[in-house]
Design a protein around this nucleic acid. Structure first.
Length: 679
DNA sequence: CTATTCCTGCCAAATCGC
DNA sequence: GCGATTTGGCAGGAATAG
């Protein structure tokens, strides 16, 4: 016994080194597994880090996919918060942004930042004073240069650190630095993109992300990942280029996690709920369903689900409307107990109403939606005075929609006010299955709306399939029976028994899941469809096909009245309408669609990452299929393998009149076509 | 105004999985 | 072999560009 000792060793540097390493990884995009879209910026990060630092993300990632979007925080603020999460420091934030930072910290459940707004007990330096001090120091601040060094100094005893001197408490240090507009404007130009991840390019974050009013204007490209693959795709068939910049909201509030005492938590909820409202939130608490989750199991969870579905055409100019809504909609109080942060980032119901009322801040868009801009907003919030777990009001703000007629009819019938409708439900009747397919039932009058978040279990991605059927109890979506689900790419909104699939990224709704899947590739670029004749890459096979038609010049649409052939339906229809004054979409077929000769239809050949199937065209104009598809016969589903396509194959005349005339606008590509001039 | 592109419901063919 | 699922084409309306 003697001589045996227990030895403990603590690496005091470990945590900081670890954090630094993680931050470096973030900077290089290494192992980042989530993209947070804020305004039109994208932030790559690690789920674990975010969820460990933020109760909001902790909740959100129990249901969300790899792409989440926050609409209640501005990008520059979120950048600061993210920097803090990865560095434990808040560096050089403008004093006038501090309030917003604190508020966002509260919303996100980042305790440290949220606490900046809480007066420290007994005479410690108050962040509010800090803020004031910082702002005051703008006039005369002797110590600011030093403050720039950002060396935190812990001073256990409170000292007066006003007048621009760094304000330091036991738990944090905060420097007040004079903010110079011009200076910031200059510096942010390089810092601004620090956390913005476009495509696969990741710039290591620097520590100073300063404000810029023009921050959102300097985004180099609002395109989603994968755009870089598009090289010179230009306007020709690159729909993805415009797809993710809209003000889209996927937010989730931090629900309330209370410590062991159910009653106290209920009380806290009861006290907090009347004052708080969570705007556009999906809150799904794993602890609620899975008591085996360590610490979570000891907490009672209050869920404040809000689902905000907004859909609109990708009009960057509209981005702000809802963002403003969110930022104004939170007036938090925070209940913190011990180590468990209990965040109620919900907001007063009145604010919610205002948030919805602000929606018309884009009245123009709202009223034009009839032609295609679609907004669907479903917001649930706690019943104010009677808030109990599971009891919510749901508001549906729906701006219609040219496409989803049924959807609009279902909701729109509720009320219509200049395109925007706000529906307030009395109660939501049930919330269950939150972590594995959150399901929200909302009774609106006689109609029942089901909101389903079909999260695919714990699947990382790409493999979850089947097995999920029991997740949604109602058998609402037969399509999901054996659906292979590769991503958490959508929500399901069930309106009167009809299932609508909502893209999690842009919130577009689809009546068909296949349509959504097809669409989602615009965001994910999981599949890429390269043109076989040029560098262009498309997110949809059809776009590529149509584009390639322009290379080949084939005219498959033939007017039955005059025999003229056209390259696509639109031209054909236009011709029929203008020349023959007939309706091409009528019952009588006024045109004929010839089989595609130049292209191998139905190829099931696409590339995911490595493009190896782009044909090579030799000098003789012969197209060699290089590489193989799934089965080794790329593009030859219906043709013998290794078939060579020649330009003669491409320009086989169609019948007697199919003599192609190369339209300068459509066929003058990089290839020389020998085309008869007579047509 | 015209041409072009984008979008999405629908459909059929190809493929997958049992 | 069969049903389910995936894939891509088509129609036709809407949006956008010139």
């Amino acid at each position: 016994m003697e001589g045996k000792k227990l030895i403990s060793a603590t690496d005091t540097q470990y945590s900081s080194v670890l954090l630094q390493s993680l931050n470096e990884q973030r900077g290089h995009g290494l192992f980042c597994d989530v993209t947070v879209i804020v305004e039109d910026r994208k932030f790559r990060a690690h789920r674990n880090i975010l969820s460990a630092s933020s109760t909001y993300f902790h909740q959100l990632f129990s249901v969300a996919g790899q792409v989440v979007e926050l609409s209640f925080v501005r990008a520059e603020i979120f950048a600061e918060i993210l920097n803090y999460i990865y560095s434990s420091k808040i560096i050089s934030i403008r004093s006038d942004l501090l309030d917003e930072l604190i508020k966002s910290g509260q919303q996100l459940g980042v305790k440290f930042i949220a606490d900046l707004g809480v007066p420290p007990p007994e005479g410690k330096n108050m962040p509010s004073e800090v803020k004031d001090g910082a702002s005051e120091t703008s006039a005369s601040s002797p110590g600011q240069k030093d403050a720039e060094t950002q060396v935190p100094v812990i001073r256990p005893d409170s000292q007066e650190v006003m007048d621009g001197m760094p304000v330091i408490t036991q738990s944090f240090s905060l420097h007040g630095i004079e903010y110079e507009t011009t200076k910031i404007t200059v510096s942010d130009s390089d810092d601004e993109d620090d956390d913005v991840i476009f495509c696969s390019e990741i710039v290591p974050p620097k520590e100073c992300i300063k404000d810029t009013n023009a921050a959102t204007q300097n985004q180099p490209c609002p395109s989603p990942a994968g755009v870089s693959d598009q090289k010179s795709c230009g306007s020709g068939g690159s729909p993805h280029l415009t797809s993710t910049t809209a003000a889209q909201k996927l937010t989730s509030s931090a629900s309330q996690l209370s410590p062991n005492q159910p009653q106290s938590s209920a009380e806290s909820l009861a006290s907090a709920a009347p004052q708080h409202l969570t705007p556009n939130i999906i809150v799904l608490n794993k602890p609620l369903l899975n008591p085996s989750l360590g610490a979570s199991s000891s907490h009672q969870t209050h869920v404040t689900p809000t689902i905000n579905l907004l859909e609109e055409n990708q009009q960057p100019s509209n981005n702000d409307s809802l963002t403003e809504v969110e930022t104004t909609a939170v007036d938090d109080e925070e209940v913190v107990e011990d180590d468990v942060a209990i965040i109620d980032s919900s907001s007063p119901g009145s604010v919610s109403s205002s948030s919805l009322a602000q929606q018309p801040s884009t009245p123009k868009a709202a009223t034009t939606e009839g032609s295609g801009v679609q907004k669907k907003q479903v917001v649930t919030f706690s019943q104010e005075p009677f808030s109990k777990p599971g009891e919510f009001k749901i508001k549906i703000s729906d701006v219609l929609t040219g496409n989803n007629k049924e959807f609009s009819s279902g909701i729109a019938s509720k009320n219509v006010a200049e395109g925007q409708k706000i529906i307030t439900l009395d109660t939501a009747t049930e919330i269950e299955g939150l972590s594995t397919g959150c399901k929200v039932y909302a009774n609106i009058g006689e109609d029942t709306y089901d909101i389903v978040i079909p999260v695919k279990g714990d699947s990382e991605e790409g493999e979850a399939k089947l097995d999920e059927t029991p997740r949604t109890s109602g058998g609402d979506s037969p399509n999901r029976k054996r659906m292979k689900v590769k991503h958490d790419d959508h929500y399901e909104l069930i309106v009167d028994g009809r299932v609508y699939y909502i893209c999690i990224v842009c919130k577009r709704s689809y009546a068909c899941l296949t349509s959504l899947r097809r669409h989602f590739n615009v965001h994910s670029w999981e599949k890429k469809y390269p043109c076989r004749y040029c560098d262009k890459v498309f997110a949809l096979a059809e776009y590529r096909t149509k584009h390639e038609i322009h290379h080949t010049g084939e005219r498959r649409y033939q007017c039955l009245t005059c025999g003229k052939s056209f390259i696509n339906y639109q031209i054909t229809a236009s011709h029929i309408r203008s020349v023959h004054s007939q309706d091409p979409s009528g019952d009588t077929k006024l045109y004929r669609l010839h089989p595609c000769r130049s292209l191998q239809i139905r190829q099931y050949a696409y590339i995911t990452n490595h493009s190896s199937s782009i044909p090579v065209i030799n000098e003789g104009g012969i197209v060699y299929r290089v590489g193989t598809g799934k089965d080794g016969t790329e593009g030859t589903t219906s043709n013998p393998p290794a078939k060579q396509i020649t330009w003669d194959d491409i320009f086989i005349p169609q019948g007697n009149e199919a003599i192609f005339k190369q339209n300068p606008s459509e066929g003058s590509t990089e290839f020389e076509f020998v085309i008869p001039e007579s047509y």
